[in-house]
Write a protein that binds this DNA or RNA. Sequence first.
DNA 1: AAAGCTGGCTACCTTAAGGTAACTGGCTAC
DNA 2: GTAGCCAGTTACCTTAAGGTAGCCAGCTTT
Lengths: 119, 119
Amino acid sequence: MKQKNHTQCTGALLPIRDALDVLSGKWKLQIIIAISAGNNRFREIERAVTGITSKVLTKELKDLEEHQLVRRTVYTGTPVLVEYTLDEYAESLENVIVALNEWGTGHRNRLMKAEAISN
Amino acid sequence: MKQKNHTQCTGALLPIRDALDVLSGKWKLQIIIAISAGNNRFREIERAVTGITSKVLTKELKDLEEHQLVRRTVYTGTPVLVEYTLDEYAESLENVIVALNEWGTGHRNRLMKAEAISN
DNA sequence: AAAGCTGGCTACCTTAAGGTAACTGGCTAC
DNA sequence: GTAGCCAGTTACCTTAAGGTAGCCAGCTTT
């Protein structure tokens, strides 16, 4: 039965590892949320995701594009417009985002309660 | 309506940020899973989480303890035993872990398919 | 007695993530 | 005509995450 547990364990570890490889870092999920909220232009995203800089944003968007989570569309007009939209594949992240959102909300409440008590 | 979207966006961003602050990094979730799978001793966890070193594990366990996700119990016998168990609060992470596990599994399949096509 | 286990700690080093600031070129609005 | 917006880029720097290796003290096994 120890063996079974260990098998379950290693079974869960690999997918988690894969997921973290793609989603790790401070920004990726925040960017996805910002785009899904209707911020489709570079500067819009930059403003929506507080604290990010254009350099980092550039890199993160490239990463997300490579993983087919974000699509970059260039409208060659004048001026040139660049639009970032979520790729279909990004929808599959919804459960992850919802779960993290819920947990983060709960955690934040917990922290605030603890703080209130200690004061 | 753009305004509403933006409010939703910033509303979701903060909790996500809080969650990532606690769970970010390569190891924390993997350690939690390893412990939940019945690896309660330091060296057991070290072996279960492939690639981690004792130094990093020490630090991560301390972090998790501070966030009340993991409990450290010392049995002062001879030899001294140290046991790591999940704190109740860690149960609240279940949805996050399940979501990440599912997404990671799907993502891994997707990658393997893409690889198969390109060969 | 030598080797291996336990739960770590220490010093040193590398890598990658992220931050700071300045700048570009073509447009537009004042 | 100058100030600002757009989508970035470049060069440089700091920080933190993580890796490598060796060690300790007390026990057990061989």
